[in-house]
């Protein structure tokens, strides 16, 4: 019964979205909305089906996924290492702190033209954009998490035989994991935004390219369909990641 009830609650939660979609469709059909405002929801879905069957959507989504994954994964690994290192090792902090402080307030999208210049218009510039977009949220959350680790946890482990280096991954990393994961969640949404922006700007492939290409060729139904896919992927990725976090941190919930 419980999963069904959960499904019912979820459906109820998103009902307003459904109503907006239906109202939009109704207004488009009755002509209240002028057609030049863009395709109706049903037209968009028809275009989506077409994009899917002719393989374009799958190809561009696959390319975007690969870029996102490569940048995101490498950034999470490196960002965690730098953040934890900054918190626990003096020289790492001395080296990286000014860099982080300087880069923190910068709008990362301003870097996209530079990345295009350095890495060309193909995969590498996009991966670099994702990488840089993820890096700071991960570094700062790992830094804060690792700094907040209770000394007594470390001392307990030390007196149980853990060496001072092994403390980093056996105690500091797991203890900082809740913070790290919330930083990673932010990184996930920021980097998706950056990736699509970079692809929109200059690219030959990817979902952002699909949006700009279909838009420029006047195929607004397909453009809307591509936008819908981008939004849905961002949304689903966040939901999925939330569930991963809950599972990884399941030791924290009280009622079980």
């Amino acid at each position: 019964m419980r999963p069904l009830a959960g499904l019912g609650r979820t459906a109820f939660y998103y009902t307003p979205l459904l109503i907006i979609g239906l109202a939009w469709e109704a207004m488009a059909r009755t002509g209240i909305l002028p057609p030049d405002l863009g395709p109706s929801p049903m037209q968009t879905i028809a275009a989506l089906r077409l994009l899917y069957t002719d393989g374009d959507l799958v190809m561009h989504a696959g390319i975007s996924f690969w870029r996102e994954f490569a940048g995101f994964a490498s950034s999470c690994v490196l960002g965690t290492a730098v953040g934890v290192g900054m918190a626990r090792v003096d020289w790492v902090r001395t080296v990286f702190r000014p860099i982080v402080t300087f880069l923190y307030p910068m709008p990362k999208s301003a870097l996209i033209p530079l990345l295009l210049l350095w890495f060309g218009i193909d995969h590498m510039s996009k991966i670099a954009a994702v990488f840089l977009g993820c890096l700071l949220p991960v570094v700062t959350s790992a830094f804060n998490g690792a700094r907040g680790v209770e000394p007594q946890l470390i001392w307990s482990a030390r007196s149980l035989g853990t060496s001072s280096t092994a403390i980093l991954w056996k105690i500091v990393l797991p203890a900082a994991l809740p913070d790290i994961l919330s930083g990673v969640r932010i990184a996930l949404s920021v980097s998706w935004l950056l990736l699509v922006s970079a692809e929109l700007l200059i690219s030959r492939s990817g979902l952002g390219f699909l949006i700009s290409y279909t838009g420029e060729s006047g195929d607004y139904s397909s453009m809307f369909a591509a936008i819908l896919v981008v939004v849905s992927i961002g949304f689903l990725a966040d939901r999925l990641f939330l569930h991963v976090i809950r599972w990884v941190l399941r030791y924290r919930d009280f009622t079980g």
Partner: peptide, 13 residues
Amino acid sequence: RGIVFQHFALFPW
């Protein structure tokens, strides 16, 4: 030298 703290300091994970 083993230690026991007032606030346990167990590994919560």
